[in-house]
Lab assay of single mutants.
Amino acid sequence: KVTYHVPNEEFARKLYKKAVDANLNVEIRVENGQFIIHIE
């Protein structure tokens, strides 16, 4: 399980798409202006 803290929405979207394309379980949320992405 990996967690990324991404300040940039564009990068967060790319990361999310890559994980989904790889059939990984992804959860994304915004906290204090940062995008928190959990990948399992």
Rank of each mutant, 00 (worst) to 15 (best):
K1H: 12
K1M: 07
K1Y: 13
K1D: 09
K1A: 09
V2A: 05
V2N: 06
V2L: 10
V2Q: 08
V2I: 12
V2T: 07
V2E: 08
V2F: 11
T3K: 09
T3R: 07
T3N: 06
T3F: 07
T3W: 09
T3M: 07
T3L: 09
T3D: 08
T3P: 05
T3I: 13
Y4Q: 06
Y4V: 13
Y4A: 08
Y4M: 09
Y4R: 11
Y4K: 07
Y4D: 08
H5Q: 09
H5V: 15
H5L: 12
H5K: 10
H5E: 08
H5I: 15
H5F: 12
V6G: 13
V6A: 10
V6F: 10
V6R: 02
V6S: 11
V6P: 13
V6M: 06
V6T: 15
V6N: 03
P7G: 13
P7M: 14
P7C: 15
P7W: 15
P7Q: 13
P7F: 15
N8P: 06
N8Q: 03
N8Y: 10
N8T: 09
N8G: 07
E9M: 06
E9T: 02
E9F: 11
E9R: 02
E10Y: 05
E10T: 03
E10N: 03
E10K: 03
E10G: 04
E10M: 03
E10L: 04
F11E: 15
F11N: 05
F11S: 10
F11A: 14
F11C: 15
F11W: 14
F11R: 07
F11V: 13
A12M: 10
A12Y: 06
A12S: 01
A12K: 02
A12I: 10
A12C: 15
A12V: 08
R13K: 12
R13P: 02
R13I: 08
R13F: 09
K14Y: 13
K14T: 07
K14R: 10
K14I: 12
K14E: 14
K14M: 11
K14S: 08
K14D: 12
L15E: 03
L15T: 02
L15C: 15
L15P: 01
L15H: 03
L15A: 03
Y16N: 02
Y16V: 10
Y16K: 05
Y16C: 12
Y16M: 08
Y16S: 03
Y16A: 12
K17R: 07
K17H: 05
K17F: 09
K17V: 07
K17G: 04
K17N: 09
K17D: 13
K17L: 09
K18R: 09
K18H: 09
K18G: 06
K18S: 11
A19M: 13
A19Y: 12
A19S: 02
A19W: 10
A19R: 02
A19L: 15
A19V: 06
A19E: 03
V20M: 11
V20G: 02
V20A: 05
V20P: 01
V20L: 13
V20S: 04
D21P: 06
D21K: 09
D21M: 11
D21N: 06
D21E: 13
D21H: 07
D21I: 09
A22N: 08
A22K: 05
A22H: 08
A22M: 12
A22Y: 11
A22P: 01
A22L: 13
N23H: 14
N23L: 14
N23D: 04
N23G: 15
N23P: 01
L24Q: 01
L24N: 01
L24S: 01
L24T: 01
L24A: 02
N25H: 14
N25C: 06
N25F: 09
N25Q: 12
N25G: 06
N25A: 09
N25E: 08
N25L: 11
N25V: 12
N25W: 14
N25R: 12
V26F: 06
V26N: 00
V26I: 05
V26T: 01
V26G: 01
E27D: 05
E27G: 03
E27R: 07
E27K: 08
E27Q: 09
E27T: 14
E27W: 12
I28E: 00
I28D: 00
I28V: 06
I28Y: 03
I28P: 00
I28C: 15
I28T: 00
I28A: 01
R29H: 11
R29Q: 07
R29G: 02
R29K: 06
R29D: 02
R29E: 05
R29S: 10
V30A: 05
V30Q: 07
V30W: 12
V30L: 06
V30T: 04
V30Y: 14
E31W: 07
E31D: 05
E31A: 08
E31K: 05
N32R: 04
N32A: 05
N32E: 05
G33P: 01
G33A: 02
G33W: 14
G33Q: 02
G33H: 03
G33E: 02
G33V: 10
G33M: 03
Q34G: 11
Q34C: 15
Q34K: 08
Q34D: 03
Q34S: 11
F35W: 15
F35N: 00
F35G: 00
I36M: 04
I36Y: 08
I36F: 08
I37V: 11
I37A: 01
I37Y: 01
I37E: 00
H38Y: 14
H38Q: 13
H38T: 15
H38G: 03
H38F: 13
H38W: 12
H38V: 15
I39F: 05
I39G: 00
I39L: 03
I39H: 01
E40I: 13
E40R: 12
E40H: 09
E40P: 03
E40Y: 14
E40F: 14
E40A: 09
